[in-house]
Amino acid sequence: MGYFARKPRNPSAMLRTNYRGGRGGTAFFHAFREDSAFSADNSGKIFYYPKARCQILTTRTVYGERSLSSY
């Protein structure tokens, strides 16, 4: 069974249902893994590919506040 075989239509539903994203744990945590093609936005929603249609996602809240102004 492929990784996305049980993908819910609404990605944010994964957070409510503790969707396990196949066999690798929740998709929420998958979005935090190094070089994962998943991303999270600042409301905690998870985006699959193709994600957000090349919008800029603000990840600051989900991934943690960081001092970005110097860059």
Binding site: A37, S39, Y49, L57, T59, Y63, G64
Partner: peptide, 12 residues
Amino acid sequence: VTSCGLDPIEKK
């Protein structure tokens, strides 16, 4: 493009 997003550089 299949995937895109603004990530922390620590995620690379």
